[in-house]
Design a protein around this nucleic acid. Structure first.
Lengths: 143, 143
DNA sequence: CTAATTCCTATTATAATCGCAGGAAAATAG
DNA sequence: CTATTTTCCTGCGATTATAATAGGAATTAG
C-alpha cells in the first residue's frame, strides 16, 4: 500500500521548485543538491511531471524547469496519479479497466469505491501551496 | 498503491465465512471452491488472520475456521492491516517506525498524516457486516 | 488406526521498484 | 561556428515484493 519513492520525491521536488519559482528556471542540479536526491534519479521523476503537464522544461544554457501553474492550483492528487500511474486501491477501479466477471455480485466493490473516493477527495483537496506552509522554515534542523 | 491480492482475498474469504457461519467450522476446501482461489494460497492468507485474532482454526476431522467475533464487529481496517502489514502510505507512519532526520522540517509529513487518517477513518468505519449487504444476492450472475 | 484438517517451513517464478549510465538534442553565450 | 550547459531519451542491473505452490508435521474425531 506504500506510495513509491517516485511519488514521495515528486512532492518534495515540486515544493522545492515552488519555493524557488521567483528565480526563473530551476535546474535539476540545484534541486538535487537541496533535496539530497541523485540528479539522475530526479530526471526520471521530473520527466513524468513534464508529460503530466505539471512542470515544463527548457533546454540549454540558462534552462531548467518551472511550474506550469501557481502552487495553489497544483493538486497533490494530480501529482501522485502522474507519478504512480494511478491512485486506485484495486485494479478494477483503475482508469480504463474493464469490469471483471464478478462485478455484479461482488461484495467488496462498494467498499473499494468508497476508499478510492476518500483518497481522491483528500488528495485533490490538498495543494503544493498547502505544503509550503507546513513543517518549519526549512532551516530548523533538529541537530 | 494497489492493495495486494492477499488483502483483497482476505475480505472475500471473511465475507464468505460470515455468510456460512451458522454451519459451524468452515473448511478451506469449501471456501476455496466457492471463491475460486487455490486452497494452498488461501492457507497462507488465513494463517495471518488467525495470528491477527480475526478467525480461529480447529484442526482435525470436523475442524475448520470460524470468525472470532460477529461480522459487525470486524473492521475492514483491522483485516487489511493484518494482511498488508500496514495501511500507512509512507514508511514514516508505519507502526514502530523511527522518525527520520527530516521530520522537523518536512513539508510533506502533514499531508501524509492526513491521508493516513482519512484511510484509517474510512476503513475502520466499514465492517464485514456492511459488505454482506452489498452486491446482489450472490446468485445473480450477469451471464 | 485412519481420514480429515489445520499448521509450518520452504521454494520458485514473475514482476515492480530503485537507481544509475551514456549519450543525443537543443539552446545560449561568446 | 564552437563550447558549454541543460533537458531529453533509452536502456540496464540490482534488489525487493508479490503470488502461488509443495511437502510434510501436528492434531482431532470416529
Amino acid at each position: 500500500m506504500l506510495i513509491s519513492t517516485k511519488g514521495r520525491y515528486a512532492l518534495r521536488i515540486l515544493v522545492d521548485m515552488a519555493e524557488h519559482q521567483s528565480e526563473g528556471y530551476i535546474t535539476l542540479q540545484e534541486v538535487a543538491g537541496r533535496q539530497d536526491i541523485s540528479e539522475k534519479y530526479l530526471e526520471s521523476i521530473v520527466r513524468e511531471l513534464v508529460k503530466g503537464g505539471i512542470v515544463s522544461g527548457q533546454r540549454g544554457k540558462g534552462g531548467g524547469y518551472r511550474l506550469c501553474r501557481p502552487p495553489e492550483k497544483i493538486k497533490v492528487g494530480d501529482i501522485l496519479r502522474c507519478t504512480e500511474g494511478s491512485l486506485a486501491p484495486v485494479a478494477c477501479l483503475m482508469e480504463g479497466s474493464v469490469p471483471c466477471a464478478r462485478t455484479a455480485r461482488c461484495r467488496t466493490l462498494e467498499f473499494w469505491k468508497g476508499l478510492d473516493e476518500a483518497i481522491r477527495r483528500y488528495t485533490d483537496g490538498y495543494t503544493i501551496a498547502d505544503m509550503m506552509q507546513s513543517g518549519g522554515d526549512g532551516d530548523d534542523y533538529i541537530i
